[in-house]
Nucleic acid binder design. Structure first.
Lengths: 348, 348
DNA sequence: TTGAAAGCGTTACCAA
DNA sequence: TTGGTAACGCTTTCAA
């Protein structure tokens, strides 16, 4: 029924071993033999049996990319870059075709663990975890355990935009400098004279949320300015929209709002507009991540640009081994402050 | 070194066959035995070997979701919905854990084929192809061949937002009614009195591009209105931005611009604003897809809402067999006209 | 309800 | 450079 390697071997009048060697290309084979085998493969329309191959070789060509929210371009951009990098690194040699696949955890710790187990089952060649992680100790421990086990089994582990698990050097980590970015953003607003700044934070238990908030507070503290109202919520538009009402209720005289990221900032802006407040005339708004659409959605949005594409590509290369892991296993990637129209001074 | 099923069997004092049956749950096993086995699994921290399992069973639990551009929320939303649906359908039984993975083709026909081959190698349980397809006959034939082969090998094939390959009923297809959507959009503008309407189309060789353009032209023809300038380009913001200059050069008196989708519309709006043209005062703009951010980016954007989430979820269910395929193998999903501020009449 | 054993299709080692 | 042949770890009849 289905064509096997043995069929190809018979047709090419060689042994199965030889066919395997031709297909994998990592072994010397006479050119004439090679051609004969490839012709047979073509004629029979043979497709390698992945599971059998993985079983025998004890590894697969699967690379898992875990993201918190696949509908968010923040992850889409990084994942896309990673997939391209992984695809390209395979071009180097004939056999190294990797299957980069992205898995959507939806921010759920259980699904994250489930996917890790599934990838472990598949004997994945590598796993990339993208985006902030939950800070629940139990989940952290569970994840760390899984990652260690994966690494032990020969799976490359790469963290991208997520802090490394303490004490585990088996994973290469690319970490965004969320703290500094948030600090720069706040300093910018403070420098313009803003003193009543609201903050729409992400979910309370995520690393990105905490780091950005910490950077923000650092700047306020350094300037001796009292912290304005802060509201937590998911990293989406609705959250920014809802939070804005709350912020204004707590301090009707806000002159600026900092959002956890650009998507949240969109919601903030929508809510402000609904109230007839102009941006940045009445209220200045700042975001984070600098997603492509943000400039259209809110031309006045000052934000922090993270090198998503570059980071994703590097993560991909680290996953295939095309790039050496950074010294110490981790590297901090800076963000760049992008100043747009919200560089307005507060009124009055 | 690594724990195998035999180890678990030994520890639980049963045969490997029994362990397999417990793990797969599709066989009657005495409750006491079951518990003993599960305890052993836990104690030994056993993880099933996916490749071995797939080899023996001749199928895997991998479900591939192919998308044209993972950085585009259009695909992200559908993919996310599909993944959730696939995950949930597994919850029904203990063993049916499926690994839904999304593969980014980047719109490249070669990569699409490569991914299909890779999934074929893996003996994927199902494959979902999302989004418009290239209309090149050669590529179409190649794809059709692959899909047929996949179906023959027992892989479920689902098309979502892509027209079915002619004469192949082996794939379930959910098709967006792009033609009607585009027609409604144009009729709306015509109804308002617009007579000089520019069109920014997608890439020339994609089904979505053609269908939307056809619907647009249908409406114009029916109204006896001459077609305005049309420019083709990729489905992204830059394309809309660049195309706008071209459109205005060809007809400086345009009163409306229809974009291939919301992302393109964003670029159109940005370009119009740069020229000091107000939306919808000077020029009305229409989009397609109704992506979440579009309302923020362009509050005045009239567009067509496609049920992305619902379609993705159904595709996921079709892939797992949780939902019966539509009669005839294909079903057309309508879009809904969303009228926002661009319901302005042309000036003068 | 459980066990024994024959594959599943490759890979990789050892010879030749 | 090539062939023979044990693994690889699981599923699945067939018997008991």
């Amino acid at each position: 029924m289905t064509v096997t390697l043995a069929d190809v071997a018979a047709r090419a009048r060689v042994s199965p071993a030889t066919v395997s060697r031709v297909l994998n290309g990592n072994y010397p084979v006479a050119e004439s033999t090679r051609e004969r085998v490839l012709r047979a493969v073509d004629e029979l329309d043979y497709v390698l049996n992945g599971p059998a191959s993985s079983l025998a070789a004890a590894t697969s060509d699967l690379v898992g990319v875990l993201v918190n929210d696949i509908a968010d371009p923040f992850f889409g951009i990084m994942a896309s870059a990673a997939q391209s990098a992984i695809g390209e690194s395979a071009t180097g040699r004939g056999g190294g075709e990797k299957l980069a696949v992205v898995c959507n955890t939806g921010g759920s710790p259980e699904r994250e663990l489930t996917y890790l187990t599934l990838l472990q089952r598949q004997r994945a060649a590598a796993v990339i975890l993208m985006g902030g992680s939950l800070e629940d100790p139990e989940h952290l421990a569970a994840t760390a355990g899984k990652l260690t086990k994966l690494a032990e089994a020969g799976t490359r582990v790469v963290l991208c935009g997520r802090p490394p698990v303490s004490g585990d050097a088996s994973a290469a980590a690319l970490v965004f400098d969320n703290r500094t970015g948030a600090r720069l953003l706040a300093e910018h607003l403070l420098g313009l004279g803003h003193r009543r700044i609201g903050y729409v934070a992400g979910p309370a238990d995520r690393t990105t949320t905490r780091h950005r908030l910490e950077g923000h507070r650092e700047a306020l503290a350094a300037a001796g300015v009292a912290e304005g109202p802060t509201v937590h919520g998911p990293y989406d538009r609705a959250s920014g929209h809802a939070a804005t009402a709350e912020l204004l209720a707590r301090d009707p005289h806000l002159t600026a709002v900092v959002a956890a990221n650009d998507t949240v900032a969109l919601g903030v802006c929508a809510a402000l507009r609904e109230r007839g407040l102009s941006i940045p005339g009445d209220v200045s708004v700042a975001g984070f991540d600098d997603l492509p659409f943000s400039v259209d959605a809110v031309p006045a949005l000052t934000t922090v640009r993270l090198p998503l594409h570059e980071a994703g590509a590097r993560a991909g290369r680290l996953a295939t081994g095309a790039e050496e892991p950074p010294a110490g296993g981790r590297e901090t990637v800076p963000g760049e402050l992008v100043i747009r129209g919200s560089t307005a001074r507060p009124r009055g």
